[in-house]
Design a protein around this nucleic acid. Structure first.
Length: 436
RNA sequence: GGCCACGUGGCGGAGUGGUGACGCAACGGUCUGCAAAACCGUGAACCCCGGUUCAAUUCCGGGCGUGGCCUCCA
């Protein structure tokens, strides 16, 4: 099976050939931990978890290194901690733990490494020093700025020239910048916000720098795949490339760049003012995690997705049926067409369509590879009633039906329905599921 | 204003230069005390206008619409 991936850098689909098949390396931008993660944040987590699983399947679990960082130093964090009158450490620790619990509930494996930015300050300072020494960065008024003019191919990922950017620029015009597009590598900190001693005084890193330093430490100068949301393409990823390549003597950074599409909710941009802003946690109150996961995978990762309650209901129904078919299978296997669809740039909608045509064994195998490993129990575990009392009621109803007391049997059925339990009379007896 | 995506049946959503993916819903049937479920079956689409071509939903140009980035929002 040849894995093909769409590379944003070249805008085409290429055969994936790892630099080292014994250690396939992937980096994905993780959350800035100042608030609950929202459903848009869940998309890259799920998409690249599927890729992680596929790579592990292809190269072996021990031969894939996946890094997803946690940004725990940021001005939004500082502002939020001040608002809530709690310490920055408390805020970031709490929020990071919530994020990890949320994505786990969505069926995501823990990454190989989940580095925190604050643990890599030394590496960041060292990288800035190299950039200054090689003429790609300059210090000015306590800041250190990257000189975009010093890199001839700056803009290659987002495909825009410095002049084009300037034409539409609304960036802060700071008098100490040589070029308006120059971005901050290091900035000074007042006494009341986090800061570290550096050759340029007490300060903190610029956002883009963090990912460059952490990927360098954990994956090396050049690695295979870098992922993230399409909105990060510029400026974040563009600047990561600039910093890393210049700090590494021009050696290439990530070979393949992958970007997931944006998410809308009920046809509109998700925003707090529109009232359609959903955190992962809120959705988990109403929907099983694997339903959210399936709903995400029913659209190709590069396409925009419209997140709707209607679609979630459909996902629930599909998943429940698959669990009925495959839940008890002891010998899962993988269908060839299913695998081929996944290998074709992670075409999960196609892969799911193939699953609809598959045997129960292949459904079980396919679901498992996609991260739906908690078969059947998880959805059934949702109702307030316990299984024992439901089964008790079913037995009473079966007895009433045998006695042709349909008034009583219908009463029991309606009573369960009112509690959200739907009965299904099949050839092998009566089963139940949670009403959607 | 600049750059860039996307627009497929009632809905979701793949894909393709020529035989109407797939799922949900709907409709018909089987089954059932009834209903649901399950199973079998049916109909239904490629934003608009040009161009290229024997042939375009698929390629090219324009238009319209939606969205993203250019403001450290995935």
């Amino acid at each position: 099976m040849v894995l093909r991936l769409h590379n944003t850098l070249t805008r085409d689909k290429v055969d994936f050939a790892p630099l080292d098949p014994k250690n396939v390396r992937m980096y994905v931008c993780g959350p800035t931990v100042y608030d609950y993660a929202h459903i848009g944040n869940a998309r890259p987590a799920i998409v690249f978890d599927v890729l992680f699983r596929l790579l592990r399947h292809s190269y072996g679990d021990a031969h894939v290194t996946f890094v997803r960082n946690i940004t725990d130093v940021d001005d939004k964090i500082n502002a939020r901690a001040a608002e809530e009158k709690i310490s920055i450490a408390d805020l970031t620790t709490r929020t990071a733990a919530q994020y990890q619990a949320d994505v786990q509930a969505l069926g995501c494996l823990p990454p190989t490494h989940e580095p925190r930015a604050t643990h890599y300050i030394g590496q960041m300072i060292a990288m800035v020093e190299r950039l200054v020494a090689s003429g790609h960065a300059y210090a000015a008024q306590g800041h250190v700025l990257f000189d975009v003019e010093s890199k001839s191919d700056y803009g290659k990922l987002s495909r825009r020239s410095i002049n084009e950017m300037l034409a539409g620029a609304r960036v802060e015009v700071a008098p100490y910048k040589k070029n308006t597009m120059d971005f901050v590598l290091w900035k000074p900190s007042d006494a009341d916000i986090p800061g570290w001693e550096s050759p340029w005084g007490r300060g903190r890193p610029g956002w883009h720098l963090e990912c460059s330093a952490m990927s360098e430490s954990l994956l090396g100068e050049t690695f295979d795949i870098h992922g993230g949301g399409i909105d990060l393409q510029f400026p974040h990823h563009e600047n990561e490339i600039a910093q890393s390549e210049c700090a590494h003597g021009g050696h290439p950074f990530a070979k393949v760049w992958m970007h997931n599409g944006f998410l809308q909710v009920e046809g509109e941009k998700m925003s707090k003012s529109l009232g359609n802003f959903f955190t992962i946690r809120e959705l988990l109150d109403d929907w099983p995690g694997e339903v959210l996961r399936l709903n995400m995978l029913r659209t190709h990762y590069r396409q925009p997705i419209d997140w709707t309650a209607h679609s979630l209901k459909e996902s629930w129904k599909i998943l429940e049926r698959w669990y009925d078919d495959a839940g008890a299978m002891a010998s899962p296997r993988l269908g060839e067409k299913f695998l081929a669809a996944l290998a074709d740039d992670l075409n999960t909608p196609q892969a799911l369509a193939e699953l609809h045509q598959e045997t129960p064994e292949a459904v079980a195998g396919g679901l498992s590879l996609l991260g739906f490993s908690v078969m059947s129990e998880s959805i059934a575990a949702k109702p307030e009633l316990d299984a024992t009392s439901i089964n008790h009621a079913i037995a009473a109803r079966t007895a009433a039906r045998a006695a042709k007391d349909f008034k009583e049997s219908d009463r029991i059925r309606d009573e369960l329905l009112a509690k959200g339990i739907v009965l299904k009379d099949g050839a092998g007896g009566t089963t139940w599921e949670v009403k959607r």
